[in-house]
Computed example of a mutant assay.
Amino acid sequence: MRILFITPYPAGRAPSQRFRFEQYLPALTANGHKYQEEAFLSEETWAILYKPGHSLSKALGILGGMLRRTALLARVSAFDFVFVHREAAPVGPPVFEWLLAKVLRKKIIYDFDDAIWLPNTSENNKIAAGVKWHHKVASVCSWAYKNSCGNSYLAAYARQFNPNTVVNPTTIDTVHLHNQVRDQARPGRLVIGWTGTHSTLKYLEQIVPVLARLEAEGLDFEFRVISNQPPNCRCAH
């Protein structure tokens, strides 16, 4: 079986891709399947995407991604399934998904692990917010052969448009990839962790009261944030 993975980001760069499917790619190969991963963003565009400025380079990077997607359409006939993670293109309507499903008649596995149909504007993406076309998620869900959703909330949304929807939780490999640094059973101070990117740091404010309550109840813990930018909230103090 040949599987085409259509992704927003370069391979190995985004946590959602690593945990949703990239960690399983060696298993596909071991079982005789072949795959190809095609990112919308190049490594060069990814490196500057969330940095201030570089407007021309970012625009050219988006244009380059659109051209690569267009060229890819000529090669999808060689694949049995097309796995679309989040979206085929970060801006505009779901043109590529429509062509894949309705014109080329490919079986699409549509995968998402966030409520990506809800607008989420930050200082870094406010210029592109008007062309992100969040409501395209419903259309892609309806065209998909099957929807793969990270939790039951996401699956409930997808099932409004397509009953062929499964809950596919985001997992980590605790045997081969993770949890090898130290013995988690070793006694020590409790660590509560949060991981995300600049676009979701604002949600930390919602858990500050919970952390304060735990502290008031005498729980001795350390709260760690893993992100590409430092948090700007009360939890950082």
Rank of each mutant, 00 (worst) to 15 (best):
I62F: 10
A39V: 00
K146L: 14
L41E: 03
E123Q: 10
A129S: 12
G32Q: 03
H33W: 10
K51R: 11
A128V: 12
K132S: 08
W143H: 04
E97T: 06
R86C: 11
L56P: 11
S148P: 04
Y110V: 03
A101L: 01
D80G: 09
D113M: 00
D114A: 04
E87Q: 15
Y153W: 15
G64D: 01
Q160C: 14
W46V: 02
R86G: 05
V91S: 10
C149T: 04
L60D: 06
E123W: 05
A158F: 04
P119A: 03
V103F: 12
E97F: 07
V167N: 12
L73Q: 13
D114P: 06
A115R: 04
Y157S: 06
R69L: 09
A144F: 07
D111T: 02
E97H: 07
A47I: 01
L100E: 10
H134Q: 11
G61R: 00
Y157E: 02
L154I: 05
M66T: 06
I48Q: 10
S148G: 07
G92W: 03
G53Y: 11
T45P: 03
W46A: 14
R75S: 09
R105C: 15
L104R: 14
N151W: 06
H85R: 01
N120I: 00
P94R: 01
G32S: 04
D111I: 00
A156S: 10
T45D: 07
N164Y: 13
F112V: 01
I109M: 13
I172S: 13
R69D: 05
A89P: 11
A155K: 04
L100P: 07
L99D: 04
E37W: 01
H33L: 08
H135P: 13
T165P: 06
E43R: 09
K102W: 09
S42H: 06
H134M: 08
I108N: 05
A101I: 00
F161T: 02
L99A: 15
F112N: 00
A158E: 01
A71V: 05
W117I: 00
T45N: 02
A39T: 02
Y50P: 08
F40W: 01
P119I: 00
L56N: 11
S55Y: 13
K146N: 09
S122N: 04
K136C: 12
K102D: 14
S139W: 13
L99C: 14
G92C: 07
H176R: 08
D111P: 03
F79W: 02
A74R: 09
T45K: 00
A78Q: 14
S57N: 11
Y145E: 14
S57D: 12
I116K: 01
N164F: 15
